[in-house]
């Protein structure tokens, strides 16, 4: 990357915390070697690896988005979602494999944001594979102690009249944010509403 990469004007958005390319890291090479040995020894097949990758790629933030859109149009579903996220996910056909899901509602008083400081815990079934920045030490280290600055880097300016509440996903819960419904969306269908829900909104680093 050239020194002046960020000096030029651009109007596209990108995640502010960039992670280095680690594909040639010792860890990645070790993982590759281990995989090849395990295939050779019959632990699993190359097809198993491909099947698992396909399964992983099928997990998408559209699942979480559909749950949020339903909550915006159906007060009973919203109550169920906030009371027991895992069961509410199941009613829309998403199985979190026994992992409890805590859904946190953003309001005029509170803005919620999720991190896992210990590793990278994340509701993959509902949000898809986590972005690189979510796993970066920079995000994990900074968002717990200076969340407002990190949120500003994502373009999210939370006024001092609202509480910022960080959720550190350190153990057995997984988290998803119920964002505030964007204004002037009364005329939209549930599917159109779901299209407005972004992955970053479900993590809480942006508002919709």
């Amino acid at each position: 990357m050239t020194q002046d990469h960020h000096a030029h004007h651009h109007d596209h958005s990108h995640d502010p915390i960039e992670a280095p390319d680690t594909s040639n890291s010792d860890t990645a090479l070790l993982a590759d070697a281990l995989r090849l040995v395990l295939i050779e020894k019959g632990g699993f097949s190359a097809q198993d690896v491909q099947d698992q990758l396909t399964l992983m790629e099928g997990r998408s933030d559209r699942n979480g988005a559909a749950m949020i859109a339903r909550a915006w149009v159906d007060a009973d579903y919203k109550a169920a979602l906030l009371a027991n996220g895992k069961e509410a996910a199941k009613t829309l056909g998403h199985d979190t494999k026994g992992t409890p899901l805590v859904v946190l509602e953003n309001t005029e008083d509170v803005h919620n944001v999720v991190v896992c400081t210990l590793c990278s815990c994340y509701p993959v079934t509902l949000l898809g594979p986590s972005p690189e920045w979510y796993k970066s030490k920079a995000y994990r280290g900074r968002v717990v102690r200076d969340p407002r600055s990190v949120l500003r880097e994502f373009g999210t300016d939370i006024g001092n009249g609202r509480e910022v509440r960080v959720h550190d996903s350190t153990a057995d819960m997984r988290y998803m944010i119920l964002p505030k419904r964007p204004p002037e969306t009364d005329h939209l269908s549930e599917a159109e509403l779901a299209a407005l829900v972004t992955r970053n909104g479900l993590i809480g680093v942006t508002e919709l």
């Binding site: 509480e163 910022v164 509440r165 960080v166 959720h167 550190d168 996903s169 153990a171 057995d172």
Partner: peptide, 8 residues
């Protein structure tokens, strides 16, 4: 009033 919630 800013807060953080942690599983313990």
């Amino acid at each position: 009033r800013d807060s953080i919630e942690i599983e313990v």
